[in-house]
Design a protein around this nucleic acid. Structure first.
Length: 292
DNA sequence: TCCCAGGATCAAG
DNA sequence: CTTGATCATGGG
């Protein structure tokens, strides 16, 4: 496990965790109650432990829930060694990313609605900006929680609350630009029962994609983002500008390939590891300057 | 000032 | 099925 690389990889469909001198902090509702937790890694990449501290109300027993939550969010059961082994041959360009990124895991969200909205916010936006937008949205429209240690946090707003807003109001409060309209529209579809994400993600990949593409503000990349990070569908490979560039360079001799074909290529080549391949290529392209 | 950021959408070719 | 213009917003 490489916790720092994993959390800082910007590979999430939920707002990034806060970083505080060596440890990360996040809030999550577990068993109906907000839990604030901080964690850091001890040991090295191959032999490690995660030290977790939770701030809870009263004497709630959150350990089992928190453990299960972190296991899912950090992909702790993903068999990275199998992944490395499967694509270890030198003729596979992906293998050149393994050394630097060893221990990088794919983070998942745990809230379908939040993942979908954040994926919409991320379109044609920088990670920094869409995260700021999401935080503003939480502060303005999310439930306010005061933890026993005195700290105050805001949860992600519900679909009902965002559905009740005028898009222009949402836009002026959060500077999310033209994305306010689809955010409100999707929220209304969920609030009035026309859209059920839970049943949507139970469909096959192709069917789920088709349904998602009918939603306002949701195109191929956002749909894949939601399926991969929000719904843990590891066969999805979102193609953004970075992936588009690096895949064209590494696999097509820098020849221009369309985005749909890039996505299709990744899915067919890496199958159930397409999401992970995308993760490693993305991180490699962004962090290793000479890669592009 | 222009270009870019984890794009989507619509009109034309 | 591909290309171009347009869409807000802040950073570089």
């Amino acid at each position: 496990m490489n916790l720092v690389e994993t959390v800082l990889s910007a590979q999430t469909s939920e707002p990034e965790w806060f970083r505080h001198n060596g440890s990360f902090t996040d809030i999550e509702v577990l068993d109906g109650t907000p839990v604030k937790y901080s964690l850091y890694q001890v040991g090295d990449t191959d032999t490690f432990a995660l030290k977790v501290k939770a701030t809870v109300f009263q004497d709630e027993k959150v350990t089992p829930s928190l453990r299960a939550h972190l296991e899912q969010v950090l992909g702790l059961t993903d068999d990275l060694e199998l992944f490395y082994h499967k694509f270890a041959n030198q003729s596979e360009p992906l293998s050149s990313t393994f050394q630097k990124l060893r221990g990088l895991r794919l983070m998942r969200g745990t809230n379908l609605y939040e993942s979908l909205i954040c994926s919409i916010l991320s379109q044609n936006n920088s990670v920094k900006l869409w995260n700021r937008t999401a935080r503003l949205m939480m502060r303005h429209y999310g439930r306010r929680v005061t933890f026993p240690d005195g700290s105050v946090s805001f949860l992600f707003p519900t679909a009902e609350v965002l559905a009740s807003l005028n898009p222009r109001t949402l836009r002026s409060k959060t500077s999310m630009g033209y994305r306010a309209k689809p955010v409100v529209e999707v929220s209304r579809m969920i609030a009035n029962g026309k859209l059920d994400l839970k049943s949507l993600v139970k469909e096959t990949y192709d069917k789920a994609i088709d349904s998602l593409l009918e939603l306002p503000g949701v195109g191929p990349k956002v749909a894949d983002c939601f399926l991969l990070y929000g719904a843990c569908r590891l066969e999805a490979a979102p193609v953004d500008v970075w992936i588009h560039r690096i895949v064209s360079r590494l696999y097509f001799g820098s020849k221009r390939v369309s985005r749909p074909k890039t996505a299709e290529f990744l899915r067919e080549r890496f199958r159930e590891w397409a999401g992970y391949a995308q993760l490693y290529l993305f991180d490699y392209a962004r962090r290793v300057n000479s890669a592009i």
